[in-house]
C-alpha cells in the first residue's frame, strides 16, 4: 500500500477529531459541574435524591422506560411581561393613563425595557416577569427547558430519544401524587384512557386480604381493573422506588441558565 501512512493519518484525524469534540471537550466543560443555586429562593440545585429514588433510577433503567420516554424539555423562546407594582406618589393618574395605552404582555426584551422606562419616567414602579415559551413548555406544563445541571445526580443520564409517551423531565412537579403513579404503572389505561403504555403488573403483588381488610398500601383501583373480591394489589419495593424516582424528576426551579419568574413571586 503506497499511501498507507496518509490513510492512517486521515483515520486518526477523523476519529481523534470527533473524540475530542464529542468526549474531551464536553467532559472539560461539564465534567466538573457542581451544585448550583436556584434564582429567587437561593436553594441548592438539583436536590439530592433520597436513597429510595436513587434505587428507583435503576428500576427505570432496568425496565427500559427510556425507550419510550424522553427526559429533556426544549424551549423555543421567552416572553416578557411588565407588571406595575406601585403607581408611585408623583403622578399616579399619569401612570394609570399610560398603562392603559401600553401593551405589557407577550413582549420581547427590548419592548419590555422600553415600556418599563416609560412607566418609571412618570414615577411608576414595575417588575419584569419572564415566561418560557415553546411546544414542550405548553404540552408538558413545564416552566423552563432542561439544562445540564438538572442531571447532576443521574448515573446514567437517560435523556431518551423517542417520545412514545410524554416527556418525564418535570413529571415530579406535574403529577406529585404517588398513588396516581402507582395505579398508572399497574394499569396505565385506568389513569389515561387508551394509553399505549404496557402494564408493569410484575412490580406489584396480588395477594389475599388479611381478615378481609385492605392494607394501607393497596391500590385503590376502579371497578373494571380491580382484582377478585377478598384480594388486593400492593406495590413491591421496586414499584415504590420507581415512583420515588419519578417524583424526584423536576425541572421547576429558575436557574441562571434558564431563568423565569416563578408563579409564587408574582403578586
Amino acid at each position: 500500500m503506497k499511501s498507507g501512512f496518509s490513510i492512517f493519518l486521515a483515520i486518526l484525524l477523523t476519529l481523534g477529531g470527533s473524540w475530542i469534540g464529542f468526549v474531551v471537550a464536553p467532559t472539560m466543560q461539564l465534567g466538573t459541574a457542581k451544585l448550583t443555586t436556584a434564582l429567587v429562593t437561593g436553594d441548592t440545585w438539583p436536590q439530592q435524591r433520597t436513597g429510595e429514588a436513587t434505587l428507583g433510577q435503576q428500576i427505570y433503567r432496568a425496565n427500559g422506560c427510556v425507550a419510550c420516554h424522553t427526559m429533556q424539555l426544549r424551549q423555543d423562546g421567552v416572553s416578557f411581561e411588565v407588571v406595575l407594582t406601585s403607581a408611585g406618589k408623583i403622578n399616579p393618574t399619569a401612570v394609570s393613563n399610560l398603562i392603559s395605552t401600553l401593551t405589557l404582555t407577550g413582549l420581547n426584551k427590548e419592548a419590555a425595557d422600553i415600556a418599563a422606562d416609560k412607566i418609571s419616567a412618570v414615577g411608576g414602579k414595575t417588575e419584569t416577569h419572564l415566561t418560557a415559551t415553546g411546544a414542550d413548555i405548553s404540552n408538558y406544563h413545564a416552566v423552563r427547558r432542561s439544562v445540564a445541571a438538572d442531571y447532576l445526580y443521574d448515573a446514567p443520564v437517560q435523556l431518551g430519544s423517542l417520545r412514545a409517551g410524554p416527556d418525564l423531565a418535570n413529571i415530579g412537579a406535574r403529577q406529585p401524587v404517588a398513588a396516581v403513579h402507582l395505579q398508572h404503572l399497574y394499569a396505565p389505561s385506568s389513569v389515561t384512557a387508551k394509553s399505549a403504555m404496557p402494564s408493569y403488573k410484575f412490580l406489584f403483588e396480588v395477594r389475599k386480604q388479611i381478615n378481609g381488610v385492605a392494607s394501607p398500601d393497596a391500590l385503590n383501583l376502579p371497578a373494571e381493573f380491580a382484582t377478585a373480591a377478598g384480594y388486593e394489589v400492593v406495590p413491591k419495593p421496586e414499584a415504590k422506588q420507581l415512583v420515588a424516582y419519578l417524583l424526584s424528576l423536576r425541572a421547576d426551579a429558575p436557574l441562571y441558565e434558564a431563568p423565569f419568574t416563578p408563579a409564587t413571586t408574582k403578586p
Binding site: 471537550a25 429567587v40 424551549q75 421567552v78 426584551k109 419584569t128 427547558r145 441558565e257 431563568p259
Partner: peptide
C-alpha cells in the same frame, strides 16, 4: 461561544445576562 451556561433560546452570554429577572431594587 461554547459558554456552558448559554442554552437556546439565548444566543450569547450577554443576552442571557440581560434576561435575568431583577427585583425593583436591583433595577
Amino acid at each position: 461561544w461554547f459558554d456552558v451556561r448559554v442554552y437556546a433560546p439565548y444566543n450569547s452570554s450577554e443576552e442571557l445576562e440581560a434576561a435575568q429577572p431583577k427585583s425593583a431594587a436591583a433595577v
